[in-house]
Design a protein around this nucleic acid. Sequence first.
DNA 1: ATAGGGTTAG
Length: 607
Amino acid sequence: MDKTSVYRGKFFPLIRLFALSHTHAALFHSCSASTSKYYSLREKPSVSRKHKVVIFRDFRHVNNLNDAVCVFNQMVQTEPLPCVVEFAKLLRVMISMKHYSGVVSFFGEMRKLGIPFDEYILTIVINSFCLLGCAEHGFSVLGIFFKSGVQFNVVTFSTILRGLCEQNKIKDAMWLFNKLVTERICKMDEVMFGIVMNGLCKQGHTQTALSLLRIMEQGDTKPNTIVYSIVVDALCKDKMVGAAFNLFNEMKRKGITPNVLTYSSLVDGLCKFDQWEGVRLLLDEMMYVNVSPNVHTFSMLVDAFCKKGMVEDAVEVLTIMIGRGEHPDVVTYNSIMEGYCLRGEIDVARRILDSMIDTGVKPDIFSYNILVNGYCKQKKLDEAMHLYFEISQKGLKPDTVTYSTILQGLFEVGRVECSENFFTEMENAGISPDIYTCGIMLHGYLKNGHVEKAMSLFHRWEKQKEDTNIFIYNTGNGGFFRIQKLDKARSIFDKLYTIGLHPDAITYNITVNGLCVEGLVDEAKELLRKMEDNGCLPDNATSNLIVHGFLKSNKANEAMAVLKEIIGRGFPAVKDTVSSLIELLLLIGEGPFLLNMIPEFHLRNEK
DNA sequence: ATAGGGTTAG
């Protein structure tokens, strides 16, 4: 019988008492072995009833994996064994040092040696698996709970749920969550709800999160500030700022106080919609209820102004925040840099990078990526490359975005071979291309006329199905149309359905436009009908593309029928489309039709 | 357990 089996079964609580008295002996033992630098008396002391000896292990000197291994080896050789709590402390230190697999192997060693463990140790092990990116291994640790009779708690399951959510396995998380609820496996708390709701929101299931909030209201665990804030933020990100404000007002009515995070989410939502007056009112309210805007809040404002090209206003926000004692950080400065880059004032941006360092704010990889992009957009590829080399010199590591940005820049100026070499450099550096990189490579090849290369890349990525999204297809589709590989484009479109990817408005637009340019009226017509059936209503771009497609193909007459049809179904025309349309109608002598349509345009534009 | 910044397609 191995040592762990002693701790199994229903007698566990009794045995735990035994283990505890064991522990005191261990503490005494470690006191006598006080030659070790890892033991000290500085922490709040615990007094052993038996020996009246004051002792605590101190792990502050454990600074690397090597230290941890030494301490661990020493601990397991100590006779009698140190307390479970001591092992838990060591494992926590290892997590803070990011030695997650070390935690797992220490735990394996502990089991082999029959060292007792408790729910805290097991939860730390689960957390390590999660941080290693394999949350599903957490389930096997759950097995250890059942086998050893250790009682789990809310935190155990919250940890697994958080891990699953972070790996975007929201379905698995929901399955577990439902099981916990329906089988009453453990008591729910606000934190667990928060974790699941946050996971749902991050995966775009805001409405499900909202219904969970409603369920909470009916139950014993009432939603708190954080739970409300999670949904408020998600609604803002879904561009449903109105709904977010409804929820915000509702929580205030119910006496749940919004905090700086709640307010900041709303400020950001309003900024993205240019609702400056609303922003002003909200900031006033914050002052009134004594919730101070912090560096996040101010950075959102700074970023919003910069993205609109209003860098002067952004700088004014910067002055205000400094005046209020809120220190701008790397994110704030990065936004300012981007603001200048967007206006083409890359040299100013470059100077900000240098002045950041003077104020004690260290640039990060974002800072460099912003500047690299600035140079690329100005087609200053040599400067961009120079900056790329500077990144490593500054002790930073170029990431996927850095490489993608430069690849895009190289393609843009037609340096296809450089792009190819740089792509190889990226792979050699161990940076794997993501969906952006794929799109850039595909589009870059197509734009520069390398159809075959684009095709082979396309097929390579297509096979790695889990990485495929609609974007790659849209890029391929548009490119293949542009170079008149109609069959290819058509087959890509058809394939979307078979692999279960849903075409979006852009997919339809690209394809409709491609068909129009080719003068394939019937097919375009067919597709528009499909578009409507699939709930993808034609948007401004659709109408523009159709009109331009027709004009380009000089097949105005045949195409006019399609236009009439979509106008009849509700043409979401905007001004620039209308002018193109007028051009087309006059071209084919459809003046009377045009006159009929004018009131129609007015009606729709006013809606 | 919750908030801010960088790269893609029509």
